[in-house]
Amino acid sequence: MISTYRRRKLANMLMLSLLGAAALVAVVPLIAVAAYVVLEGAGAINLDFFTQLPSPAGEAGGGMGNAVVGTLELVAIASALATPTGVMAGIYLAQQGRGTRLGPLVRLLSDVLNGVPTIVVGLFVYGLLVLTTGSFSALAGGVALGVIMLPVIARTTEEAVLQVPSSVREAALALGLPEWRATLRVVLPTARSGILTGVILGVARISGETAPLLFTAFGNSFWSLDPTKPIASLPVQIYNFATGPYESWHRQAWGAALVLMTMVLALNLAARWLSRSR
């Protein structure tokens, strides 16, 4: 009897410690990656990094100004496409789609789209826009990122709209507002911070994406804002520099990683803060 009790106690101690150890091991990679990115990247960050073009192969100095601007442009194009689309689809999922057969199907497809490998999205947009226009372009890159962002915004909008108490919606309807005005003027403003959280999460998700840009936005060694021309981006630049042979490129890649990671983590923390302070 006693020995059984002791064995159970021991097993308990052992397994609980293993679970704790698993939790600790789980955060080691984040610390390791973050530490290296900060240590290696900090040295590459200066004013030139944000204002200069990359220097010619192998030479020191230069910056990634064009890639910083390019990433911002790509994210802006993607957000401009995906936000209205995703919000409307999210409203459908939360309201009109309830009790229909199409609603759950769209919800499932949205989740499935969210899980499609991003490189495949890149191939898709390559066929859709690059082959047809005959050129890599910022627009193609933005569309690819928009496709990735869309399900994130649709599902967070759905959740935010569902969080609006039905009493608020009913008050608007009882006042004699048609459904669409009640939704746009009363329900959506009430769900505002939830939807904003979704957009921020969507931006965080796409701003570090590389694979969908390889065959769409491609890359560019020079300044460009033209949406019909190839455009540089931080993630693609990191990839090209990290796999290149030059020491100076590697340093720049770490610097770009630091900028990118700071941006993405800040966006994620902002989204968390926003959704908690609601």
């Binding site: 009493s167 004699g176 403003p189 009430t190």
Partner: peptide
């Protein structure tokens, strides 16, 4: 509903609107 108004069990002013805007909403 414009001719038949309604008041609910739980007070439900529109959370994003001011007092004035709530009354003026309809």
């Amino acid at each position: 509903r414009r001719r038949v108004g309604m008041v609910f069990q739980q007070p439900n002013p529109f959370p994003t609107m001011s007092i004035y805007d709530n009354v003026a909403a309809g």
